[in-house]
Design a protein around this nucleic acid. Structure first.
Lengths: 214, 214
DNA sequence: AGGTGTGAACACTTTCACAGCA
DNA sequence: TGCTGTGAAAGTGTTCACACCT
């Protein structure tokens, strides 16, 4: 119990991900150090913001010099919990689910889809890569068998609340939801939403504003 | 020119989308009025927040009564620019692109994919629904021919900056980007990002924190 | 009574500016 | 000199509390 109740804002957290992404590209290029200024340029923020974000977790830089790329990347991976791989279940193997299954970026970042569940009985038994699709009735069993850390919900809106409840009861504490609806989130579970319609409406808002006002 | 330079925060904007989603479900159920309290319950926020958000655009409610559902929905659609359909181009017809093409929620909200472009010459000429895939070389032409309002970029990271530049030069001013990389955004263009890895890392951060601290 | 609309209080985030170290 | 780390200042977003209307 090392009092690690990190109270970090969501915006800081998101930026940490972006810093890490850029740092890893620098690592590949063999760059050894980077300034807060350069980090800021490549993550659409300011140098002060970068330094402030990092200062919540310690002092990683050398004054007058910058940050050691590999060291900082390592520290960020530690902060973001990326020092171990995660076992992910995909619930819903429709179009969105299938696209997510094939999404290489997940695997590259250590998020491994080790289980797929679908309500359509015709899909049960089918192979996706080296995973066999399991029927909905086996959801809890699969989550336990495979020691799943994170569930991705790519099921239709009417089904998603029940799926979330079942997933939570099976002990999964982290969920990424793609169904565009408001969920009752069970105690102790963290849900993050990907809502593409909201993003599109953010764009239509801007387009409408341009037309009307200049 | 009616001075419509709405200065609304991103968080307010996102909540407006959620309010509208809930209002439309109430409309379907034939509910006539709704209180800020109920709206808040169904959008994970507070009644005060709802009222404050709406107050930026006018007074839509009746004191002691609540908001007229249909009227408020209509107003929100107006604010979000959803009073007309939008013509959308999908650039990249890989797995993510195909899933987006089939995503019914877009169509339902008035975002119609009227053009698909892909760099793979073998895909050019293929039909997707009632759209024919066009080769990358015709990108600008297609965007103009089809009077595209919004481009969805679902291309690989190494290609996305060039695609964005071309799309912008062809006059598209709103872009939804799925490629996980930082973009140089051309003047006058609005880009929104969907970054699923960042969301996953938000989850791994929480899981790691639980394990370490309690 | 009941629920909106809103200024004022509060909390949180970002930016500034500069001391301090390599 | 150059760039980090950080308090203090500024700016934004959220919550409170209550006047006001129905």
């Amino acid at each position: 119990m090392t009092a690690t109740a990190r109270k970090v804002s969501d915006s800081t957290l998101r930026r940490l991900s972006l810093y890490l992404r850029y740092l890893e590209s620098l690592e590949e290029e063999g760059v050894a150090t980077v300034s807060s200024d350069l980090l800021a340029c490549h993550t659409r923020t300011t140098a002060a913001q970068v330094r402030k974000d990092l200062s919540h977790f310690g002092s990683f830089g050398k004054r007058g010099f910058g940050y050691p790329v590999s060291e900082l990347a390592r520290r960020l991976r530690g902060i973001l919990g990326l020092t171990r791989p995660y076992r992910v279940a995909l619930v819903g193997a429709g179009r969105v689910g299938s696209a997510l299954f094939a999404y290489e970026e997940f695997r590259r970042r250590g998020f491994h889809i080790v289980a797929v569940v679908d309500a359509d009985p015709r899909k049960a038994g089918r192979r996706m890569g080296d995973v066999v699709v399991r029927p909905a009735g086996e959801l809890e069993a699969v989550l336990r068998e495979e020691a799943v850390d994170i569930a991705i919900l790519a099921v239709p809106v009417p089904a998603v609340q029940e799926v979330l409840d079942r997933v939570a009861r099976a002990g999964v504490r982290a969920v990424l939801n793609f169904a565009p609806t408001e969920l009752q989130v069970p105690e102790g579970v963290t849900v993050r939403e990907v809502n593409m319609v909201v993003e599109m409406e953010g764009l239509s808002f801007v387009l409408a504003g341009e037309g009307a006002g200049g």
